[in-house]
Nucleic acid binder design. Sequence first.
DNA 1: ATGCCTTCTAGCAGAAGA
Length: 263
Amino acid sequence: MRIATWNVNSIKQRLEAVTTWLGDAEPDVVCLQEIKCTDEAFPREAFLDCGYNALVHGQKGFNGVAILSRRPVEDAWTGLPGDDEDTHSRYIEGVISTADGVVRVASIYLPNGNPSDSPKYPYKLAWMDRLIAHARDRLALEEPLVLAGDYNVIADERDVYDPASWTDDALFRPETRAQFRRLLDLGLTDALRACSDEAGLYTFWDYQAGAWQRNKGLHIDHLLLSPEAADRLAAVHIDKAVRAREKPSDHVPVVVDLAIDVE
DNA sequence: ATGCCTTCTAGCAGAAGA
């Protein structure tokens, strides 16, 4: 079973890029972030034509998450418990039945949090508290679980081109990294780090200042696996070549292969 | 030191992103 995560930075602008990539990469499930459209505006038909069902939690203008799946997705769940005031569309989860049993998948768009001296930063840290609480509940189900998305977290020095220049950034501040460790300490495995401890395995390159050409990247897109999923981890791949294509997103797909028979 | 670039909504500039 192949599961991917990709922050597409507007599904409307990236529709052709995504459908082309689906044909090339042949994932069973894709977690999308920053679709930047309402549920109604999501191009469901285009994905149905490619053989994918869509589960969508959209928002006008910004944010928005979705899950594309070849198999039907059941038990749809949107949003994180714990804050009735939170209007951002940043979390969607569903369950996919396979020949090897169910797999639970979530698409996560964690708040950026910058500037880190603004209210956006405490919102980020509180959102992470809510994610941790929800992940704890889901882990108790003891299912294969994949929490995939744009975490807006630089977990350590290997994940950023110039750590010193990022010390006060909301993506890299000690409080952010401590929250990410709390999440992992629930018993989750970062799929990429289970396969490699190499530095410079980036998933994002800013549009500005020639960041891609200079390889000034960040590793901020993660697939976190429950023990039941980690036991079946076969491979991880960052599809870096996608960043060099026409009209790219600033993020690239990250793909895991799990030893689970879909059909 | 700042902006660099891309997308959105609104309406021909400003917010948001990371």
